[in-house]
């Protein structure tokens, strides 16, 4: 009787082992299936397949890996918000440093793609705090530099771009050239000059057309100032011909439209110019940083 029990226990042990290995094999198959879908470019179904692994697996490491691959599939579909939301499920799993590092990095990347640059920087700082030894990776500096550029934080952007150049394994001459280019892009003369919208409005309030000129649109300023003079002139001529009511309604009516419209237009033009100038500079700086990263 005793030996029968011992035999059963041994069999149970072997069965349990075999069951565990069959579960592991099934997970491996599922991963392979999901990866194949991903490789075939079927990102939608790949995302579902990775989510299924995440949902069914009892292994935390498998789950975090599946979650990372799902995020990749979602990113390929342009679903950065969903990818970030799903990655958050694994943010507490610090016992798998490689995967945890990637989770934090991918979250910061999704934040960048979503245009939330302040959150990118705070995410990368968190990553630096947890993994100081890994945080000097090119991709981390790249994201830092890009986020600071987009946030118009020029000093920090320059520092991270220079750090990126420093860790790139390139020829000394090329590195020097890159540093020179970085100096040029981030030099005060090359940085976008931001015009104050309030100042443009104030100038146009007291000196019609000058706000437009300050914003960089002298033609529009002259046109607006001339329109106001003509409207006032019309009111004067009408009053001279004793058409007081018509002069008041038509002449002064037109004048007030041009006057207040001019103030609003000057503000709008200043904002428009700032946007254009900054966008041009950001595009230039971003292309440079990406070029450095790709070396």
């Amino acid at each position: 009787m005793k030996w029968i029990n011992v035999f059963c226990l041994i069999c149970m042990f072997l069965c349990a082992g075999s069951f565990h290995s069959s579960v592991v094999a099934a997970e491996k198959d599922d991963f392979e299936y999901a990866e194949n879908l991903f490789q075939d470019g079927n990102f939608f179904e790949a995302a579902i397949a990775f989510e299924r692994i995440f949902f069914l697996s009892g292994d935390s490491q498998v789950r975090i890996k599946a979650n990372l691959r799902r995020a990749e599939a979602l990113k390929q579909q342009g679903k950065f918000r969903e990818a970030r939301m799903d990655l958050q499920r694994s943010v507490h799993l610090r016992n798998f440093p490689d995967e945890h590092f990637m989770v934090l990095y991918q979250m910061a990347f999704c934040d960048y793609m979503l245009g939330n640059y302040t959150r990118v920087i705070s995410g990368l700082r968190q990553l630096e705090h947890f993994y100081p030894e890994r945080s000097n990776a090119e991709k981390v500096w790249l994201l830092y530099a890009l986020a600071h550029i987009m946030n118009s934080e020029y000093e920090q952007a320059r520092a991270f771009t220079d750090s990126l150049i420093a860790i790139q394994l390139v020829d000394e001459n090329i590195a020097e050239e890159l540093k020179r280019e970085s100096q040029r892009i981030f030099s005060t003369e090359n940085l976008p000059v931001v015009k104050s919208e309030n100042r443009a409005a104030n100038l146009s309030t007291f000196l019609p057309g000058v706000g437009h000129m300050y914003a960089g649109y002298p033609g529009k300023g002259i046109l607006n100032a001339s329109s106001q003079v003509i409207a006032l002139g019309l009111a004067g001529i009408m009053a001279y011909h004793q058409l007081y009511i018509s002069g008041f309604v038509i002449g002064l009516g037109m004048f007030q439209s041009f006057y207040f419209g001019g103030i609003r237009q000057a503000t709008f033009l200043a904002a428009q110019r700032n946007l254009k100038e900054t966008a041009n500079w950001k595009e230039q700086a971003r292309s440079f940083v990406i070029e450095v990263y790709e070396l």
Binding site: N5, C11, M12, C15, S18, F19
Partner: peptide
Amino acid sequence: TCRLFFLIILLGH
């Protein structure tokens, strides 16, 4: 009990 478990596990497997 041990044998009963064995049977269940065998079936599950």
